[in-house]
Computed example of a mutant assay.
Amino acid sequence: MAKYRHALPQHRGGIFLTDGGMETTLIFHEGVDLPHFAAFVLLDHEEGREKLKQYYAAYLAVARRHGTGFVLDSPTWRANPDWGAKLGFDAAALDAVNARSIAFLDALRAEWERPGAPCVISGAVGPRGDGYKAGNMDAVEAEDYHRAQIAAFARGGADMVTAYTLNSVNEAIGIARAAQSLDMPSAISFTVETDGRLVKGETLREAIEAVDRETGCAVEYFLINCAHPTHFEDALKAGEGWTERIHGLRANASTKSHAELDESEALDAGDPVDLGRRYVALRRAFPKLRILGGCCGTDHRHAAAICEACVPPRALSA
């Protein structure tokens, strides 16, 4: 375990696939009950672990067909103290399930990893509150709040941590500092509104530059997730240095706003082929975009469309 913690293969080039909208896939396609959108509860029983295994396998099979690497994110986006308390998990139970999530991924890596196509294990961190509403923690409070989960990932043997769907610069700074204090590589993924800005109005440039300034560039790289490319394409300017810090995309399938998605009772799967084309265009303008996956509404079909657009098929030996 912790096979790549001190030499992340993403930095050496090549494309790395990730999964897509785990929670939306499990709820809308598989009919799984996920209280409070929490997938980590599935780790506590055999049926749930099998559902998760099948979910990841669909993406890993796409990666194998195309010969890409893979970033295996743990199903722990909600496994923090506030959400855990709502689900009956105290600090000890959360620590155990976060560590178990890494062992679960390590078994998947042993089954799927092949020479030339590394699988990186990343502990997934989510926002303390709602990813669509502004948080109000300062950076010191955020560092203290998220440290326990990151420590569990470190002890469990994760290669890195990735914080998803962040809309607060202070929370991002706190997470990056907590990871740095535990000698864990970290990535930060911001979400934006339809105007390409964070919910409080910061631009992506302002958010990324603030995190780098306040942490001494401790973050390995940044991503954008939980927004459709049409929401942030205009916010990215080719040739501006700050955009080179963005190495990953995990877009939503739908062009709807966060408010519209919150009100929707049906899953909007969008157009996988169009999403693949948009990823290609973004990669042409921003060559460092190499970690590709999806978020709400996406499934393995979207991952396949992205790979088919960005990477020629190449079967690896079994």
Score class of each variant (00 low, 15 high):
T191D: 11
I306Q: 04
F37M: 03
R301M: 12
A259P: 05
T255S: 11
D299G: 11
Y221N: 10
K237L: 10
Y4F: 15
G48Q: 10
G129H: 03
G135P: 10
L198G: 12
A172V: 04
E240Q: 04
L289R: 05
D82C: 01
D262T: 02
H11Q: 15
E240V: 02
A269C: 13
E47S: 12
G116H: 02
P229I: 06
I121N: 10
S186P: 01
G216V: 04
Y56L: 01
D234S: 14
G48F: 12
E143S: 12
K51T: 11
E46N: 10
A96I: 06
P81G: 11
F28W: 11
C310L: 08
P312K: 08
F37I: 03
A2P: 05
T194A: 03
C295N: 09
K288D: 08
K53H: 14
G216T: 03
H300Q: 13
V97N: 09
L316Q: 12
D274I: 05
L17F: 13
G216H: 08
Y56Q: 02
Q10P: 00
E244Q: 07
G13W: 08
V211D: 02
S74F: 03
S181Q: 13
I306T: 01
E171S: 05
G294H: 05
R197A: 13
N136I: 14
D82N: 13
E308H: 00
G67D: 12
A281C: 00
D90H: 06
C296A: 09
A187E: 03
A148F: 04
M22C: 01
N225D: 07
L289D: 02
P229M: 07
G241Y: 08
A238L: 06
D138A: 00
C226G: 06
D212E: 00
G69W: 06
P81L: 12
D299K: 10
D90E: 10
E202W: 12
T255R: 07
G294V: 00
D106P: 00
A303M: 15
A63F: 11
K3S: 14
A269V: 14
V211A: 02
A269F: 05
K200M: 15
A57S: 13
S257N: 01
Y221D: 01
W83F: 14
D138I: 10
Q54L: 12
D144L: 15
G126L: 06
P118A: 09
L261F: 10
I102G: 06
G131W: 06
E220I: 05
R109K: 15
L72G: 04
G196I: 01
H66S: 05
H66E: 11
L267K: 13
D130R: 06
G131Y: 14
E209G: 07
V273Y: 09
I121H: 05
K53M: 13
T298M: 09
A124Y: 09
L105S: 08
S317G: 14
T203I: 06
A266P: 00
N98T: 11
T194Y: 02
E30H: 14
G239W: 09
T165M: 09
A7T: 13
R147T: 00
A179Y: 04
D138P: 10
A39H: 05
D195K: 07
E206W: 05
P75E: 10
A178L: 04
A281K: 05
A57F: 10
P115R: 08
Y164I: 09
A269E: 15
V120Y: 04
G84K: 03
E23Q: 13
V280D: 12
R284Y: 04
Q54R: 15
H45L: 03
R290A: 14
